[in-house]
Nucleic acid binder design. Structure first.
Lengths: 216, 216
DNA sequence: CTTTTCAGTGTACAAGTGTTGACTCAAAAA
DNA sequence: TTTTTGAGTCAACACTTGTACACTGAAAAG
């Protein structure tokens, strides 16, 4: 750097741009219903408006691209946490409105969450553990929030984290339903939230009568 | 039919035999870590010791083969139910030993359950809904057992079925963990059961304090 | 017996795959 | 200014993919 910027793009800006185009192209294909595992490097390159060999300037192979998508996904999840915490009544009403926020994020980033559903239990080992890692982080953050705001005195840290993993697993598990029922009827989003909330209440009830002594 | 059977195979026996060989070949590839979505017709045919074009005598395409695997999977699940019910203490001790039986079935049919994990949320719509259908059936059977043997008077039918779907989802969700930790150390199976049982206890506690009035 | 049926074979093709190496040519560095 | 760097291009490779078509030959039907 040193020369005046003009309105042209610097070299690494341009690089980052096509890099993003490649990732977006892959995600778009996933969003269209293709399975990430069966998407070819060439297909991605073509969709990004780039020659196949150019792919290698950015990723070793499709799996490495996938791992970068996982990172994006992690950032997205943290963004959801931030948004949820920003509610003024987050403390008292932890579930209901947070779920609405979650569903909004999901529907605004369909492709990312299709990817999540596909790879969480179906991807290569590396992708799987990457996603698992992000979800565990999410669950632990949730646990620390519940420790502050919820009434969970009788539950020790380890148990609470495990409970939150169950919750996160439940949410992730039902996400595919939300994605499938696309723009069919708009009222479905509320229906989905209600049904999911019901399941979460079950877990919550369980947590209420949980004692960390005499359990393991 | 009419001629003496000799020790040769009849035509449709032989047909069913290669048909099974094709399905087994696909499952074997899944068990080796390949994703079902990216397995080719030719690969399956070669692995089954059959020429590619012969595939079409049995299945229109890989998806149709997949749907037949789903059927096999359904039969397997029903076999698990039968085995679990055959325990003399099934009534009182519904969870613990049933889980052991489940894990045994999983480890004896690794490929089928890899397939399950891959396709439950990551497969094509048809495969997904097929698997979902089988799991729902399983959950409903479980619900009817619980109605008979458990203390679930305060839970109406619909709620109980939903609770069982949560349980089944939880089990399915953790199955990938069981499969990943292969023959590494044998004691892991018990560890897995313990951890899963803990999660199920959480749901069970929740069910205990569930009231179907004032909930939806 | 003769005839029909049909699972499995062999060949062929057009299209797509990952990866190679040598090439441009503009931005960045000297 | 000149030199260097490196993202993107182009052409070519060896290989795999799904599918079509004509075939064989033994089991089943007549």
């Amino acid at each position: 750097m040193g020369v005046a910027v003009r309105n042209m793009l610097t070299r690494e800006e341009k690089k980052g741009q096509t890099r993003a185009a490649l990732m977006d192209a892959a995600l778009e294909l996933v969003g269209k219903g293709e399975n990430f595992a069966s998407i070819s490097l060439r297909e991605v390159a073509k969709n990004a408006g780039v020659v196949p060999t150019s792919f290698y300037r950015h990723f070793r192979d499709m799996e490495e691209l996938g791992l970068n998508i996982v990172d994006e996904l992690g950032m997205l999840l943290r963004k959801i946490l931030r948004a949820a915490r920003q509610q003024e009544d987050y403390v008292t009403n932890l579930t209901r409105r947070s779920l609405v926020i979650y569903t909004q994020f999901v529907l605004e980033h369909r492709s990312h969450f299709y990817f999540l559903c596909q790879c969480r239990t179906g991807g290569t080992p590396a992708l799987r553990s990457g996603i698992r890692h992000e979800l565990r982080y999410f669950a632990n953050e949730l646990a620390s929030d519940m420790r502050q705001f919820g009434s969970v005195e009788r539950i020790d840290r380890e148990d609470l984290e495990q409970i939150c993993e169950v919750i996160v697993g439940l949410v992730a598990d039902t996400t595919i339903d939300l994605l499938d029922l696309q723009a069919s009827h708009t009222g479905f989003q509320e229906e989905y939230v209600a049904q999911l909330q019901k399941k979460l209440r079950l877990v919550w009830l369980g947590a209420q009568s949980w004692r960390s002594d005499r359990s393991a």
